[in-house]
Design a protein around this nucleic acid. Structure first.
Length: 1136
RNA sequence: GCGCGCGUAGCUCAGUUGGUUAGAGCGCUACCCUGAUAAGGUAGAGGUCCCAAGUUCGAAUCUUGGCGCGCGCACCA
């Protein structure tokens, strides 16, 4: 027998007990054990960083990540879920720096790299407890005990292997990169960090004259005019760029005595005139191409020798000036400035590409080299004496003053724009700065990455060719190295004699090198501090201590480069590194690559989605470089659900300082995890940005969880009363699916049960089939909506329509007093609840488990599966779906709804019985009419009428009209459609329908000549109620009610009102529903008195009245108004 | 600046290849039920489907151009 159920469930408490029960019973492990050997469903966990607090967005990802593995496991697949943690990177270092109260690299070095790294390793787990709590609390089943950790030695060695592969294939190289540089902190910042630090500032905006040189190298009075907002880059000027096909003009001040001539792009000439408030005349014009190759005098002689421009031999022959020369560049625009761009290759990425292109034109070794007057600490070097030792931005004013004094400053103004500052030292502006960096040649694999991407199933689909595809198409080489401390060390050792390098694949390989030294550094540290994690031996500074004999030069030593790598490479390597592959874990890797399914939020397109795809494509894609391990596209993941970002209550980004969202823990404590999960899964498509609203989460409870719980509670209450006990009726419960239940005593085949039961099981099985196909297509939103509709059908139709059976006399225990129809109702509802528990289990794992534990666990004392998550997902049995019945029942529900609408229109409340209701079906298909008439009782009961029929002479109540079926006739008639539509609407519908019925076709004359040939199916029939009837209509039916009331009907209506009044009294007196009462009435209305007398048996039985009489009611009897008739009622509990 | 997404009822959101009267939940109003009851049901009101042009017999849906919001990228020489 079932345990009693609380009507008011405390979901948070319930969930806590379920979570504890899962833990104690190892339910997750059991769910895996069941499926061992079954086809795999491979899931990759994108590693979160435990260095930050989990927030509501993580609740969403963890819910989605839990849903599909649970579902697939129930569907019969084997899905191991290995957790993982992302542990490296600047955020960890920043946390530690904050703790230590330091900022710059110099301060870290002063503190000591070794203790700093120890701090980092400890800091990684700062919020571990919160993460583990969240994971368990939200019901995310994943194996935390076997989590991969990116700083572990085995993980690092896998990454080393990958990097060594790339290095050996020539895909890992060292080059320059212009980075956003935090000069005070001595480090480059990632684009994400830069993006966080933009501030609106006003910078000087200067227009500077670059005088062109004549053949002797002397400046002329004709100058290029360049524009810049960073005067401090002018001392490092190297070129001036123009657009070749753009027209340039030479301007002279019309009113000035001055002979100065300015060259600017023609479209910008007028603007310059306005700024200078001068009337310029155009004295010459030329295309940009004509300027290319001309030399000019740079604004400062920082790097220039006096005299003629230095030249060098070109690769193609001839000589050209090395620098301070006009070049052509496509990126030059006329949006702002002058159309002439000052190029300082050290301080801009596009500027740098100009230098690289120029270098390529010259004979090897003789081209321009990078010139740079700025030191890494952001101060000018001695090369620019005027600013030597001062921070560059502080020199802007002196630089412009100097230019003005030399007559080179054409114009100066303020320019307001966004400029990046350091995100954690917001007084420090960032500068663009060239650094040596290690790159992965990903751009060479652009086409392969696109091909790999093309095979991935992205949800939503537009990610593939949209955001992600675009990103791949504009791919640039991956800047891999970081000049930091806490990260995977770049495994490249360089010969100190020759500069030649080689990559190391594992720690063991390193120790096996000839003449290896320095391994003892870690050993000593470990001896001094036995708690030191062994994993740190592959980290700085210990790894840097290891050197070995150079294979390239006798006497040379191999020393590691100083850099660590971008931590995105770590996470992107997890498909193999999580197993330590290829050094170990072969079986695991082979059986779990690629992933069937991953999911993260959209911010991972350039993060984890990209790093995984890039690494996998380079390592496992076809390659001209020998590649032993080629895999078919797609890899390393086949399907990816890209989640939208979560917004706060106000629709803005969630922000701790704005307090515009509730902490997940608060949500769990108030409403429970299932409420949150259901809100995520059933509230909206997962890729829309979700507004995280407490109100919406709260409302997701009554709409689904509570409704399901109410049905369950109803069932248990009455099953206990009626002795419905499957545990004793069923010897071998199996998995409690349909076939298992069929072996129970007292169970009747569905075909023998009543219509309502057959309908319920039809809906159940149809829903299961549809949910399965939707879930297989990763459409949990559609599946959840279908499930919600099913629960509504159970609650608001099956249970409501079955109440009489549940309350009928007789038991449901299969004994001699058993009531067969009642027992059928129990078996139907029992099966429905069990199946819904299974269907909903991946969505709301706690609530369904609680229901299952009682309906199956308690009922069978352990003979049935102990957890709903250890059952098979119901796929729906088509043989149990009666489509006609489903359709007809929908018509009945429609009729009931229309009948109430018709009543409402006439202000005839449902308590007032009516004589008759008639229905006219729009689509008199099959035998629906006969079926409906056979179910007149049902309709009469729902609508409180005496008689129901399908109308035999519909023309009395309705008019029929025909409308074109646009979908069918549209393609057929094209432009004639409006005419045909007119003809159909205005024509004789009855005649047309008759013709169609008789001949299978009809011709409709069109206005202006011609005819349209109409066939059955080309038109739709619409029925409309004629005026004057109490009717309501829908596309399916018209319902007409008889609104005339006879005295008998009025009397019945009065009596129903009286009963209602008494029931309300009973409730107010807090009587038990089995208590009997004595009733005394007093009324001056003879009509009311007569009505009650006439129906006194009905009144007595409805209200459980032991006695009923008219008289003088005791004082305090409640006065009532019964449709205008006064009535005093005294209700007293009967003595017996 | 470029790219991606979004814009539908007071609020939160659905809307399947273009098709007839654009839906749901919440909220609101009225009513009903009262043996699941701090629940439940029915009905109603509420819409310029952001704007404009175009394609089409027909556009919430397709195209183009705006406007607004979000995100990403780049740039700010």
């Amino acid at each position: 027998m079932f345990d009693p159920v609380r009507g008011q469930p405390d979901f948070p408490a319930l969930e806590a007990s379920i979570a504890a029960w899962w833990r104690d019973h190892g339910t997750y492990d059991k769910s895996l054990t069941r499926r061992r050997g079954a086809p795999r469903f491979v899931f990759f966990e994108g590693p979160p960083t435990a260095n930050g607090m989990p927030h509501p967005g993580h609740c969403l990802t963890r819910t989605i990540k839990d849903l599909y593995p649970r579902y697939r496991t129930m569907r019969g697949q084997f899905c191991e879920r290995k957790a993982g943690w992302d542990t490296h990177g600047l955020p960890v270092e920043v946390e530690v720096c904050k703790e230590l109260g330091i900022h710059s690299k110099a301060e870290i070095e002063a503190y000591g790299v070794e203790p700093f790294i120890h701090k980092c390793q400890e800091s990684v787990w700062r919020y571990m407890k919160e993460w583990e709590t969240l994971t368990e609390r939200i019901g995310f089943w994943i194996d935390l005990s076997k989590a991969y950790v990116t700083y572990h030695q085995s993980f690092v060695e896998s990454v080393w292997w990958a990097l060594a592969e790339l290095f050996d294939k020539g895909l890992l190289y060292q080059g320059h990169k212009i980075v956003w540089w935090w000069a005070q902190g001595g480090t480059a910042l990632s684009s994400g960090e830069v993006g966080q630090g933009y501030q609106e500032v006003a910078d000087p905006s200067v227009y500077v004259a670059f005088p062109l040189l004549d053949d002797t190298g002397a400046p002329t009075s004709r100058s290029l005019v360049a524009w810049t907002t960073t005067p401090w880059t002018l001392p490092s000027n190297q070129f001036a760029a123009v657009k070749a096909d753009l027209d340039y003009v030479v301007l002279r001040d019309a009113g000035g005595a001055d002979a100065a001539e300015y060259i600017v792009a023609e479209p910008l000439a007028a603007g310059l005139g306005e700024k200078l408030k001068k009337e310029f005349e155009v004295v010459d014009r030329m295309p940009g191409a004509a300027l290319v190759g001309r030399c000019y005098q740079p604004p400062f002689d920082t790097f220039r020798q006096p005299g003629s421009p230095a030249t060098a031999p070109l690769a193609a022959g001839g000589h050209e000036a090395i620098a301070w020369r006009v070049v052509a560049a496509d990126f030059v625009t006329t949006d702002s400035g002058t159309g002439i761009v000052h190029i300082a290759p050290a301080f801009g990425e596009v500027d740098y590409t100009v230098l690289v292109a120029e270098q390529a034109r010259f004979a090897p070794g003789s081209g321009p080299s990078l010139i740079n007057a700025v030191a890494p600490d952001g101060t000018f070097t001695d090369a620019f004496g005027m600013g030597s030792g001062r921070f560059v931005k502080d020199c802007d004013r002196d630089i412009t003053r100097d230019l003005r004094s030399r007559g080179l400053l054409v114009h100066q103004e303020q320019y307001v724009h966004d400029y990046p500052f350091c995100w954690r030292a917001d007084n420090d502006p960032l500068i663009q700065y060239p650094r040596q960096s290690w790159f992965i040649r990903t751009s060479q694999f652009r086409e392969q990455m696109l091909a790999n991407n093309a095979a991935i199933e992205w949800l939503p689909e537009h990610i593939k060719d949209g955001r992600f595809g675009n990103f791949l198409a504009t791919n640039v080489d991956w800047a891999l190295s970081r000049e930091r401390y806490w990260g995977t060390p770049l495994p490249i050792w360089v010969c100190d004699a020759t500069g030649k390098a080689e990559a190391i694949r594992s720690y063991a390989d390193l120790l096996a090198k000839p003449g290896v030294l320095g391994a003892d550094v870690f050993a000593k540290a470990k001896a001094a501090n036995p708690d030191l994690s062994d994993d740190l031996k592959v980290h700085k500074p210990y790894i840097d201590a290891i050197t070995y004999d150079s294979p390239f030069a006798a006497g040379g030593r191999m020393r590691r480069v100083t850099e660590v790598i971008d931590c995105w490479f770590d996470s992107g390597a997890m498909p193999f590194a999580q197993w330590g592959w290829p050094h170990q874990g072969h079986a695991e890797f082979e059986s779990q690559f690629p992933a069937d399914f991953i999911s993260e939020a959209i911010d991972q397109t350039r993060g984890w989605f990209y790093s995984q795809l890039a690494i996998s494509t380079l390592l496992f894609g076809p390659s001209e470089v020998s590649s032993p391990d080629v895999r078919a596209w797609p890899h390393p993941f086949k399907t990816c659900i890209v989640l939208g970002h979560m917004l706060g209550e106000d629709g803005q980004k969630m922000s701790k300082s704005k307090r515009n969202y509730r902490e997940p823990s608060e949500i769990f404590d108030r409403y429970g995890a299932d409420a949150l999960r259901w809100f995520f899964l059933a509230g909206q498509a997962p890729w829309t940005s979700i507004r995280y609203s407490e109100r919406a989460i709260k409302e997701s409870i009554p709409e689904f969880l509570l409704r399901l719980w109410n049905v369950y509670s109803f069932f248990v209450i009455y099953a206990r009363i009626d002795g419905f006990d499957p545990g004793s009726a069923l010897a071998a419960p199996g998995m409690l699916d349909h076939a298992d239940l069929a072996t129970a005593s007292g169970w009747r085949p569905v075909a023998e049960r009543g219509e309502l039961d057959r309908w319920m099981l039809s809906e159940l099985n149809a829903t299961a089939a549809e949910m399965t196909s939707r879930m297989d297509a990763y459409d949990h939103f559609g599946a959840a909506q279908r499930l919600s509709a099913l629960v509504d059908a159970v609650s608001n139709w099956f249970v409501r329509r079955s109440r009489d059976r549940f309350w009928a006399p007789g038991r449901a225990d299969g004994g001699p007093d058993a009531n067969v129809e009642k027992t059928d109702a129990y078996w139907t509802l029992y099966e429905t609840l069990l199946t819904i528990s299974k269907l909903a289990a991946p969505f709301v794992p706690f609530t369904t488990e609680a229901i299952w534990k009682n309906l199956a666990g308690v009922a069978f004392s352990g003979r049935a599966p102990e957890s709903v998550h250890l059952t098979d997902y119901p796929a729906g049995d088509a043989a149990l779906v009666d489509h006609d019945l489903v359709r007809r029942m929908a018509v009945v529900r429609d009729i009931a709804s229309l009948g109430r609408a018709a009543r409402a229109g006439e202000k005839l409340k449902v308590r007032q019985p009516l004589q008759k209701v008639e229905v006219i079906l729009a689509d008199a298909r099959a035998d629906d009419a006969a079926w409906l008439e056979a179910h007149a009782d049902l309709v009469c009961d729902e609508l409180n009428v005496k008689q129901f029929e399908v109308c035999g002479e519909p023309d009395r109540y309705i008019t029929r009209s025909v409308l074109p079926d646009l979908k069918k006739l549209g393609p057929k008639l094209g432009k004639d459609l409006p005419k045909a539509r007119d003809a159909l609407v205005k024509g004789d519908a009855a005649a047309l329908l008759a013709a169609l019925a008789a001949h299978g076709r009809a011709e409709v004359p069109l206005a202006g000549g011609g005819v349209a040939v109409i066939e059955p199916g080309d038109v739709l029939v619409r029925t409309t109620a004629k005026p004057g009837w109490a009717a309501a209509e829908s596309p399916r039916a018209v319902v007409v009610i008889a609104k005339d009331l006879t005295p008998e009907l009025i009397a019945e209506g009065l009596v129903r009102e009286v009963v209602h009044a008494i029931q309300t009294e009973r409730k107010q007196l807090d009587l038990d529903f089995t208590d009997r009462i004595d009733l005394v009435f007093a009324t001056e209305s003879e009509a009311l008195r007569a009505a009650i007398e006439h129906h006194r048996d009905y009144v007595a039985s409805e209200t459980l009245a032991a006695s009923l009489h008219f008289g003088t009611p005791p004082a305090g009897a409640e006065p009532h108004d019964i449709d205008g008739h006064p009535l005093a009622i005294a209700v007293a509990k009967a003595s017996s």
